[in-house]
Nucleic acid binder design. Structure first.
Lengths: 130, 130
DNA sequence: GTCCATGCAAACGATTTGCATGCGT
DNA sequence: ACGCATGCAAATCGTTTGCATGGAC
């Protein structure tokens, strides 16, 4: 993983300690929900506000530094933006695993002009839970 | 499309006029958000409550008569449950189109025990908007 | 007649906003 | 010094709940 600091280099976003800690936390967990970011960052910044976490998440999404995923029956989670990939979600423990997308799934739909993005979620039980 | 009435046959759900109209509305539009169901049904039942729409949607999801989809940047929409398929979402007009899934996309992920469900969203511009 | 459904209002959880103060640049 | 960021409280949005009345069966 690249240096977290560099992620903000070509943006107008300032490198505040709170913001950097939010990014480090997301990087550490891979996929994490807002509340869990908040609770983790609060250990280092007890006075941080949930609103600050939300504002940061939105600013970082705006800059495409973060991506939001929203699997069924689970609260939205965030990850550092990487190259496109799918998400396997364990129905039991809720853990999210990345996987590589085969360049398949090309639909034969004549209403489509061009495809600019995709999301693939798979659901099941992970080996740890079995 | 099968008869809307029959959808409720093997359930404990009663065939109330409001419920049937909700189902007909979803069937008519293919994919539709709660608010839009509410506004459409209100033309026939001016006194219907948004809460009633929500309660019906939840009951019908419970019975697997409805499926929920939740593409990025769009409010949740509902459709009559059909066999598994993907959704193409136009970024401009928001319209959702079904497409057939090729049985591909099998991830090589050793954490997976077995796969029980999937969701595939594609995003782009539809020909109408181009 | 029973039980579920409806409709209203209130409650709720998640997210956003406004504003005064603080801090990175 | 300027402008964005933070933190707090209040506001907002989508959704759910409780309860009394009404309607399907």
């Amino acid at each position: 993983m690249q240096n977290i600091q560099n992620l903000l280099d070509n943006t107008s976003l300032k490198k505040t300690p709170q913001r950097l800690t939010i990014l480090k936390t997301i990087d550490k967990y891979g996929h994490i929900a807002i509340e869990d970011i908040y609770n983790e960052v609060k250990e280092q910044f007890p006075s941080i506000s949930l609103a600050t976490v939300y504002k940061n998440i939105n600013a970082l999404k705006e800059e495409n530094i973060l991506s939001e995923i929203h699997p069924k029956d689970v609260k939205p989670k965030f990850e550092i933006t990487k190259k496109p990939h799918g998400h396997f979600v364990c129905k039991k423990c809720g853990e999210v695993y990345d996987f590589e997308l085969q360049n398949s799934c090309q639909p034969s739909l004549d209403v489509i002009d061009n495809i600019e993005g995709s999301e693939v979620y798979l659901y099941g039980i992970c080996k740890k839970c079995k």
